[in-house]
């Protein structure tokens, strides 16, 4: 019925904003905008050319192509996808692959389903082509880091991390509660089975389609899932038989696109989107859906007038 937030914003800007501001105030507003853009997108103070640009948001596409943005965003993703920094560089596989995705202008879903491997090569960590790759999810250091310690070798932690990283699933682990029974029987008890067996993201069901862990630490090895455990029905009625099936279902969902734009907002604002920003969020999703690039999602939000108000 009424005006969209964007149209309203434009009208109000004309009525109360830029046209009413003296030149010096416009310059100051542009400089504040340049500072905000630069620190947000690169972590650094603005360049003199950005500071002197009367429309710094016009430079957003260029800023998103710079190495500083690739570094800042890869760090942000690594921070969002893990509980803490890796103990070795290769454990930060999400950092290396997200940076590679940005540097090579690849679609964002390849971070999770691309045919890559992230592994140490001497003193460096490299991203290489791997026909058996599944984003960074099959990279050796990541597999070991999140293999977990379930007694029978079911990778519950991996099951959670996969869904957390791709669609932002958040669950509170109860295994720290004193006296809690975290065996298979315990996980089937009321209060636990919701997350482990009954929810669309049932960790025990997902873990059954993953390779199974044997051993611990550097001696860990993985064996294929038991044929009798396949397939599993998760995600509200989707049958999966492997990690690849799971990721394919996740990246083709609304949840994946929603997650991409929530990441964009969190990167740019330090918080998730608000109700008032729903219209910008929807345009973010449209842009991301159109070309699959996370840069497009970030660009919509950073280029919107509201970002510099």
């Amino acid at each position: 019925m009424g005006l969209s937030a964007r149209k309203l914003s434009t009208l109000l800007s004309l009525a109360f904003g830029l046209l009413a501001l003296p030149v010096a105030a416009q310059d100051a507003a542009s400089q504040r905008c340049a500072t905000k853009l630069s620190i947000t997108l690169s972590g650094k103070a603005p360049s003199s050319s950005l500071l002197s640009d009367p429309n710094p948001q016009g430079q957003v596409p260029a800023l998103l192509g710079l190495a500083d943005f690739q570094e800042a965003f890869a760090r942000f993703i690594n921070g969002a996808f893990n509980r803490g920094p890796g103990t070795t560089p290769e454990e930060d596989a999400s950092y290396y692959l997200s940076k590679y995705i940005l540097q090579n202008n690849k679609p964002w879903h390849e971070l999770f389903d691309g045919q890559y491997k992230v592994a140490a090569n001497g003193t460096e960590v490299q991203v290489t082509a791997d026909p058996e790759g599944l984003g960074y999810f099959r990279s050796p250091a990541w597999l070991k880091r999140y293999a977990g310690n379930e007694a029978a070798g079911f990778k519950l932690v991996t099951a959670y991390r996969l869904q957390n990283n791709v669609i932002g699933l958040q669950l509170a682990a109860a295994t720290q509660t004193p006296g809690v029974d975290f065996t298979l029987d315990g996980r089937q008890a009321l209060g636990c089975r919701g997350c482990h067996f009954d929810s669309p993201f049932a960790l025990d069901k997902v873990a059954r389609v993953l390779t199974r862990r044997t051993g611990e630490g550097n001696n860990v090895t993985f064996t294929p899932p038991a044929a009798s455990d396949l397939p599993q029905t998760v995600l509200g009625g989707i049958q999966i038989s492997s990690d690849k099936d799971l990721v394919a279902a996740l990246v083709s969902s609304d949840s994946f696109r929603f997650r991409a734009c929530r990441l964009a907002f969190t990167f740019l604002y330090g918080r998730a989107e608000t109700k008032l920003e729903a219209e910008v969020f929807d345009r973010c999703v449209d842009a991301f859906t159109a070309d699959g690039r996370i840069q497009s999602a970030v660009s919509v939000v950073a280029s919107d007038a509201s970002f510099c108000q």
């Binding site: 669609i167 929810s199 669309p200 993201f201 995600l235 509200g236 969902s253 609304d254 949840s255 696109r257 929603f258 109700k275 729903a278 219209e279 969020f281 929807d282 999703v285």
Partner: peptide, 8 residues
């Protein structure tokens, strides 16, 4: 804003 469907 639009609504986005969650799994399940």
């Amino acid at each position: 804003g639009r609504s986005y469907k969650a799994f399940g």
